[in-house]
Design a binder for these strands. Sequence first.
DNA 1: AACTTAAGCGGACCTAGGTCCGGATCGTAA
DNA 2: TTACGATCCGGACCTAGGTCCGCTTAAGTT
Lengths: 217, 217
Amino acid sequence: MSSLLPPCPEPEEKIGEPQQLIQLGAAGDEPCLRADAARNRARLLDAAARLIAEHGAAGVTMEAVAAAANVGKGTVFRRFGDRTGLLMALLDHAEQKMQAAFLGGPPPLGPGAPPVERLRAFGIALLRRLAGELDLQLAAEAAADRRYAVPARRVQHSHVVLLLRQTLPHADHELLAHTLMGYLNPVLVHHLTRQCGVPMARLENGWNDLVDRITAA
Amino acid sequence: MSSLLPPCPEPEEKIGEPQQLIQLGAAGDEPCLRADAARNRARLLDAAARLIAEHGAAGVTMEAVAAAANVGKGTVFRRFGDRTGLLMALLDHAEQKMQAAFLGGPPPLGPGAPPVERLRAFGIALLRRLAGELDLQLAAEAAADRRYAVPARRVQHSHVVLLLRQTLPHADHELLAHTLMGYLNPVLVHHLTRQCGVPMARLENGWNDLVDRITAA
DNA sequence: AACTTAAGCGGACCTAGGTCCGGATCGTAA
DNA sequence: TTACGATCCGGACCTAGGTCCGCTTAAGTT
């Protein structure tokens, strides 16, 4: 069975942010904003971060962000598309740093280590990052029908597919990657850690165990 | 490592529907509605089903359902709590039928077959059911912070934990069950089948393969 | 420097989910 | 049958995300 999915017909038109360091084939044309637009964008991100730090991601409205940034509401939506877009933009820094780490950084996360070890390191790194961003990650969840089209997620998914392919020659890497990524779902992590009191250490052990089971010959 | 999670502090107060055949320990006290309330409930479910069949789940507003049922908007929310509650009520029949099948029906779904076979049958059955309900399942997705508290999901999860426990004596059944359930996530199924064109047969093979890997000694 | 135009701005406006509370109704007890 | 209280009804109302469109302005062009 092949592991190549017809690569998911590109979601028609990307609204809002260009946003990703690695576009995996998609055009990486940063539109280069007009001076005033760039200024307002920065103001908005700053205002959003401040408000969220103060009231929590769930307690901040788009109108409040606009007001705090001294900007019209329409400007927020023009720049970021929708609420999810704004929140994902706030997560973008950490995302790009992590992408750089697992695409080109030092082992065991980056190239150089055996694929299974990279897989382990990837999950642990993502779990730890998620744990520190849970509020935002939860609030930034995309609508159900776009969730798997979020660029950051696609990059992570592709990375896992790659590592699996180097480990298991004959398997449905796409589906196995979805399974692995499912374990790293922010909503699940939130549920387990915050609502069930599961300690992070157990989640991390769970990940390593899962990788072992899935990559066992 | 124990597989017993502190069973997730019951979400404070259950709004709306009592809804589940098996409450897994929670009180199963059907409140027995007043005559007019029961009549309106039936009208609402009927109207909702009709409208959704005609316009798709995403194209139906709560107000439209209320109007089609000749009932006030407040009545809808009183009875079902919120939009998600109404949609989940529409899915309840199928859910109860399936619960009955895997809790007490004939093998391989019900008791009698070896646990691994029951696990396989469970996933296949759920996948097929989801495939026929994708619109509704997608629209009925609960808010992120309640998603794992939905009664139907908890019952399914517990069932998987049970089967895993009978198969793997020493494993973190809770976490493995979450992984398996993640594969059966309606949003993922929608993404793969509708957006990527993956045929159901491949998803089913993927499930069996996943069960094998996870339950391998 | 004057002109042009694509990009951006802002806030009025729309929609749809969710809340509230005064009044109507059901079920029961006397 | 009547009286009464708990339950329910309905639609006005609130909120917050998202859209629209006439006006403004940055940034090239001659």
